[in-house]
Nucleic acid binder design. Structure first.
Lengths: 249, 249
DNA sequence: TATCCTGTTTGATCTGCATCAAGGCCGGGC
DNA sequence: GCCCGGCCTTGATGCAGATCAAACAGGATA
């Protein structure tokens, strides 16, 4: 995989929703640590559809999504694909202590990532406990999300799966762009095929079930991507979720 | 849920495969920290079939499995169940920073757990970075296992699912009881129904596919539980796994 | 020994989703 | 304007696994 040369940003600079700075460091660490992190930081950008890294490739960095969406997928030899992670702004990728990527990482929209070389980042973790504590919290959240997802994959019907995915995206959208109340409106960031890879379905089934939810009035749909959810509780009900706050995605 | 009063073990004492002591502490911490952990430690035992804790219940401890097997399961209102975690000796349960259980935890065999009250354990984490680093490693391993499991749930056939589960159990068994070579022999620790909950199948399908693997000579089966695997690579092939070391369960 | 109970196997049938196939929509290049 | 290629929808058909139902095995109890 040929990569453009990373851009080293040597001074303090805001990087939007970058997790490392905003959550792990800023809130708790002193300015020396923040400065060290900033000096290690560089950005990489990708166009929609580009592969960030292939499973099995050497991976000498860790990163945080600044803007855009990326996916983690696993592929079997015969081509069957399953998405195993959805990376939204502020999510972390990469794993201290492992030198090769375990999954394909792909940009589904234009993507900006804030990266740190792995070795100095690992050194920093060893000397700065707040960072590994914050990483532990984030990893536990991801594990919870993965387990919710396992229930979806193992036991939900196609209709419930689609409704669940829409609920996840709607909830994320609300938390990023809070509104007082009223309908939730968003554009689907995934193609039908990507939704299918997420849900363990085929793209035809996704298409049929999206149409069915529209026909039944659970969602409104303009064009192929623009979704309006008037009754979020109804959506949750169709998703088969207990109507609590659930879903720590 | 009525619990027997925990037994406080005030002095250093071996606890077999207890993760906290052996992996997180012994190898890296000084004896003061080890002593503090030992003073916090107590044991709880459960009989096969007993529920350790229900989802939503207050959970004021974290624990490590010493012996026996436990499962984490999620249940939908209508009774559909999906196992989302399988806890084997040395596995860790509970989550610093959360006060209620997110899953049902059930002992599938007689079970001994080594517990720590959550509050003092959290305090210890804050003051002892090695522990949270070790927890981070373990959580990342669990996340990898969950993602492998997602591929299984979303994309594998019933036959592949069964073979995958047998491979996981066989591999665990080999790593616990190493042998030079030759057939891998073990007893299934799960009922057909538990296997079904693990794999997102019904117990009838599990039964049929186990019989099919026996008929095809992929496994030998004496009685309902006693399994012999003569050709592990063949089993992996049927499981649809790339034949690398895979599966960090 | 008979009887019960739990876990399991096996058979018959049904159905939800995959698969195969054909068009439709729309934006971009010429 | 036209055509082309991605993405999406819709229809027809098939099949893997669910569901419903019955019987079996083996250990515990009496």
């Amino acid at each position: 995989m040929a990569l453009r040369e990373p851009i080293i940003i040597p001074h303090l600079q805001d990087c939007g929703s970058c997790t490392i700075r905003h959550r792990a460091v800023c809130a708790r660490c002193d300015s020396d640590e923040l400065l060290r992190l900033e000096q290690m930081k560089y950005y990489r950008s990708f166009e929609a559809g580009q592969t960030v890294i292939w499973s099995g490739d050497r991976m000498d960095f860790v990163a945080s999504v600044v803007s855009g969406i990326a996916t983690l997928t696993q592929t079997m030899e015969d081509g069957r694909r399953q998405m195993v992670g959805l990376l939204l702004p502020s999510d972390f990728v990469g794993r201290p202590g492992r030198s090769t990527a375990a999954y394909d990482v792909t940009a589904t929209t234009d993507l900006l990532m804030c990266c740190f070389r792995k070795k100095p980042f690992e050194d920093l973790i060893l000397s700065t406990p707040h960072i590994s504590q914050r990483l532990l919290e984030m990893t536990l959240d991801e594990l919870d999300a993965a387990r919710e997802w396992m229930l979806l994959l193992g036991r939900k019907t196609a209709r419930e799966k689609i409704a669940s995915l829409l609920a996840i995206i709607a909830r994320r959208d609300v938390s990023l762009n809070p509104r007082k109340s009223g309908p939730i409106v968003f554009d689907l960031p995934l193609t039908r095929e990507e939704m299918a890879d997420y849900l363990g379905l085929t793209l035809e089934t996704v298409s049929r079930q999206v149409s069915a939810l529209k026909r039944d009035g659970v969602i409104l749909l303009e064009g192929k991507r623009h979704v309006t959810v008037n009754d979020f509780d109804r959506l949750l009900e169709v998703a088969g979720d207990d109507s609590d706050g659930g879903y720590p995605v």
